[in-house]
Simulated scan of single mutants.
Amino acid sequence: MNLATLLLFLPACFALNMAPGPNNLLSVRNATAYGFRTSCLAGAGRLAAFALMIALASAGLAVVLLQASELLFYGIKILGAAYLLYLAYQLWSADTQAEAEKNTAPLGLAALARQEFLVAIGNPKAILIFTAFLPQFVDPTAPVPGQFLVLGALFLLLEWIAISAYAYMGLHMRRWFAEPRGQKIFNRCCAALLSAAASVLLLARRA
């Protein structure tokens, strides 16, 4: 892998990291509810899921597990969509007035990180992105595992930057939606977007 390849990889990769999606929406929501630092730390759950996917892709197992198994692919897809719909329901039905009066965070950091992990790992298309995207920048004439390690580490670093960027956005949105009524509107907008993401996931087909 040479410098020219890396210069092509970095902007293309960062575009994927910054693309709006369920996990980035969670970063915004978590920062709005719990603050910038907590949202960034919760993103470690997402990074753990992506690291696992990159490891599978580098070992060549992702194609075997998902592309070769229609049942597994659709099973993961349905579970992932169901979890997104569950999160959407929680946001839609949340009692923002009661939350404001309690002035306490209903979820701890571990629970938020687990939420990030489950949303990321529940999307089979994410693994297929790693199997289709990362190999384009791998030189087959050189040792492949080391290249996957470098590309994977860069991907996770850029993903962490994306987490921070969306969390920062959520931090400022918290000032706009500080009142229970505004928080309710924001929660329901997030719920609608998560439901839309679940619908897109259900309509996804295997490559």
Results as ranks from 00 to 15, higher is better:
residue 199 S to T: 15
residue 145 P to G: 05
residue 88 A to L: 02
residue 97 Q to T: 14
residue 90 Q to H: 08
residue 59 A to S: 13
residue 201 L to T: 06
residue 183 Q to H: 09
residue 126 A to T: 13
residue 14 F to Q: 04
residue 177 F to K: 07
residue 203 L to K: 12
residue 125 K to E: 10
residue 100 A to S: 13
residue 26 L to D: 01
residue 82 A to Q: 10
residue 59 A to R: 12
residue 147 Q to Y: 05
residue 19 A to G: 07
residue 148 F to E: 00
residue 175 R to L: 14
residue 167 A to M: 03
residue 100 A to I: 03
residue 20 P to E: 12
residue 116 E to M: 13
residue 180 P to S: 11
residue 93 S to C: 07
residue 62 A to I: 03
residue 86 Y to S: 06
residue 63 V to R: 15
residue 52 L to I: 06
residue 37 R to I: 04
residue 175 R to D: 12
residue 180 P to C: 09
residue 60 G to T: 04
residue 131 T to Q: 09
residue 114 R to N: 07
residue 68 A to G: 15
residue 88 A to F: 00
residue 33 A to H: 03
residue 50 F to C: 07
residue 170 G to M: 05
residue 13 C to I: 01
residue 115 Q to V: 01
residue 56 L to K: 02
residue 111 A to R: 14
residue 125 K to G: 11
residue 174 R to D: 05
residue 27 S to C: 15
residue 179 E to T: 12
residue 156 L to I: 06
residue 133 F to D: 09
residue 114 R to T: 13
residue 175 R to Y: 08
residue 55 A to N: 00
residue 29 R to L: 12
residue 1 M to D: 08
residue 106 P to E: 10
residue 198 A to N: 05
residue 162 A to M: 02
residue 8 L to H: 14
residue 179 E to P: 00
residue 95 D to W: 05
residue 179 E to Y: 03
residue 50 F to M: 08
residue 95 D to Q: 11
residue 106 P to I: 09
residue 64 V to K: 15
residue 151 L to E: 02
residue 6 L to K: 07
residue 94 A to N: 08
residue 136 Q to V: 10
residue 180 P to M: 11
residue 45 G to Q: 04
residue 143 P to G: 08
residue 180 P to W: 06
residue 114 R to D: 01
residue 23 N to W: 00
residue 186 F to K: 05
residue 74 Y to T: 10
residue 204 A to T: 14
residue 88 A to R: 00
residue 102 K to G: 08
residue 110 A to I: 12
residue 76 I to Q: 12
residue 10 L to R: 06
residue 38 T to I: 13
residue 205 R to D: 13
residue 151 L to M: 09
residue 157 L to S: 12
residue 65 L to F: 14
residue 146 G to H: 05
residue 95 D to T: 10
residue 95 D to N: 15
residue 54 I to V: 15
residue 95 D to E: 06
residue 93 S to D: 04
residue 88 A to H: 01
residue 173 M to A: 13
residue 11 P to E: 10
residue 153 A to N: 02
residue 180 P to R: 09
residue 136 Q to C: 11
residue 97 Q to V: 15
residue 138 V to L: 10
residue 179 E to R: 14
residue 29 R to I: 04
residue 32 T to H: 08
residue 136 Q to F: 07
residue 173 M to F: 11
residue 38 T to H: 11
residue 182 G to N: 11
residue 120 A to I: 03
residue 27 S to R: 04
residue 140 P to Y: 10
residue 136 Q to M: 14
residue 113 A to W: 03
residue 31 A to P: 04
residue 71 L to F: 13
